[in-house]
Amino acid sequence: MIKDKHMPALQGMFPSWITSCSSDGEPNTTVISQIWYVDENHVALSFQFFNKTKKNISENPYAYATISDPSTLKQYNLELKFDHEETEGELFDEMDMKLQAIASMTGMTGIFKLRAADVYKVISISE
């Protein structure tokens, strides 16, 4: 489902948008730094702080994301469904490493911590 042409948009160079919805139907849209490529049918979001997105997803697993290719500024819309969370393994380590690198540069080692990699199934991609 995710093709090579989508890859530049998943490098985290441009911020992405993610929209979730609470159980009583109230939507919430927020900016996140990166949506991570897992495999052609999955992407991941980093879970660092408990926020509204996290709360909404726990009530309603569907979400909607917009990613941008930094070189063409082309936007893609992804329909997602929360699948599972990972607290160890290759994906978690890779995300954790980057987070730690940035956090340590700004003197926030230990405060800014990856709690989990939330893996979503990609239902559809549209331009």
């Binding site: 490098q11 985290g12 160079m13 441009f14 911020p15 730094s33 990166q34 980057k98 690198a101 940035i102 540069m105 700004t106």
Partner: peptide, 8 residues
């Protein structure tokens, strides 16, 4: 690491 400026 891409996008370092923004992440910082």
């Amino acid at each position: 690491m891409a996008n370092l400026g923004m992440q910082r």
